[in-house]
Design a binder for these strands. Structure first.
Lengths: 251, 251
DNA sequence: CGCCAGCTTGACTACAATCAACCATCGTGG
DNA sequence: CCACGATGGTTGATTGTAGTCAAGCTGGCG
């Protein structure tokens, strides 16, 4: 969420990855780390609002987010847009496309971002020589699946208020896990249009719903950003518990 | 969808698996087939309506569906239920739980079923010694993710009619791919309550929506079963295209 | 200064939930 | 054999949630 230099060089060696030191991520063996390091092709610096991956394309790359926020989305032919999930530091982006062939969704940056770039065609090598990492990749896919299951439950069976509360509690919990948030209340870099496209609501109704949350002092809305004041209150309202995330892999 | 004998023996050797011969599934090497065969512990015969896996449990097993239909679902603490996806022959069930630890959703049989039973703790072995199969497992997870993405789009941005049409077109396309359906119109083994819990609608409204589809001669509703008369018409109404599924793995 | 993006609010409409019956079919037990 | 209760589907009336339309506000920026 900070520096943006329009270059493509490599600035962060995997051995000094700022994410890897977080207690949240599992340790790698030296051999694994060496491979990941050689797997990395460089870094991609993306501006806020730019498209990282586009639906229908066939990207040769795969990314891990080093810093910044993004979201995955799909659109209907007539333009209606639906946000599928959010992408935070440590997340793998483009795995689905790498495995299935063509991208079935797009990814757009919510903030300036830095991403590690991997070569999709070396994924084979990873599976051939590094079963531990191969398992990690599957683990990451299973984690995404779990999140999508939750979103479907929310979209299908929660009321507008509950959905909004769930979304914000969810994002808070994810940001906290990767050490964004600090002591001050977390600022989520969203517009109300993003919230609407996530919850499956119109902007107008989203606005009215968020106002109610603000009136209850659970959040505070600022320009293109939501301050999470009371994450526990949001969880309670949504009747949702943040999963106890154990150590997870980082590729 | 046919025979049901309450035993647990092994009746179908992997080498003679009725699914494996379908053009839809990729060929295995002899070594891979041997492993899968040894990975298989037996068969589970499940009655219609029985629970295969339960949310919150920690199952030691992993299954592949040999025959029959099932669905995955989650519930809110107050009982509201949401169906997440359907499970058809050739599908892997319980992978998420095997990788993440605890099951985060339940699975229930829509028809009598036969499932191949695998030992979860031998998944390591698979990743260690069979990179091709490991990749297949990841492929399967990515495929599920793609389906969930579609469902989220549908739930969030399609109208009730479009959602219903999408669901039925989707199920038709999946059934067709695994050779259920034959020449006669496909019968989908659902109650209207299942449809409601999938689309995030009330039963009453679901009923009215399905009537409209029936009036347009796209489907015909019978007791606990929906006959898909015009799959193309449903696709068109939902503005959805069935994915061109290439050969896929079967474990 | 004026435009644009993002947020806000009110009035009106429409889609979907809830409530309340009612029907048909099927399996069970008196 | 029939009465019953249960399951699954159908329909109409009423209520309420969310969508659409329309206007206006604010702050940033060219």
């Amino acid at each position: 969420m900070s520096l943006v230099l329009p270059s493509t060089g490599r600035r962060v060696p995997c051995e000094q990855c700022p994410l890897r030191v977080l207690p949240h991520f599992r340790d790698f063996t030296v051999r694994e780390l060496d491979f990941v390091s050689s797997f990395k092709r460089g870094e991609l610096v993306a501006e806020m609002g730019s498209t990282i991956l586009a639906e229908g394309s066939l990207s040769p790359h795969l990314y891990t987010v080093l810093s910044g926020w993004a979201f995955r989305f799909k659109s209907l032919p007539d333009g209606r847009r639906q946000i599928l999930n959010y992408v935070l530091p440590g997340d793998l982006v483009g795995l689905q496309g790498s495995i299935t062939g063509e991208m079935e969704h797009s990814v757009e940056a919510l903030t300036p971002m830095i991403l590690c770039v991997f070569q999709r065609d070396r994924l084979d090598e990873l599976f051939q020589g590094y079963p531990g990492l191969a398992f990690d990749v599957t683990w990451i896919a299973a984690r995404e699946e779990r999140m999508l299951d939750e979103h479907i439950l929310s979209l299908g069976r929660r009321t507008a208020m509950e959905r909004a509360a769930y979304l914000l509690a969810f994002l808070h919990s994810r940001a906290e896990a990767v050490g964004i948030s600090g002591t001050t209340p977390l600022q989520v870099p969203l517009s109300q249009q993003h919230v609407a496209d996530t919850l499956g609501l119109s902007i107008v109704h989203t606005n009215k719903t968020l106002r109610k949350l603000a009136d209850r002092k659970l959040i505070r809305w600022m320009d293109r950003s939501c301050e999470i004041i009371d994450p526990e209150g949001l969880q309670e309202l949504a009747d949702w518990e943040a999963p106890a995330e154990r150590k997870r892999p980082l590729i």
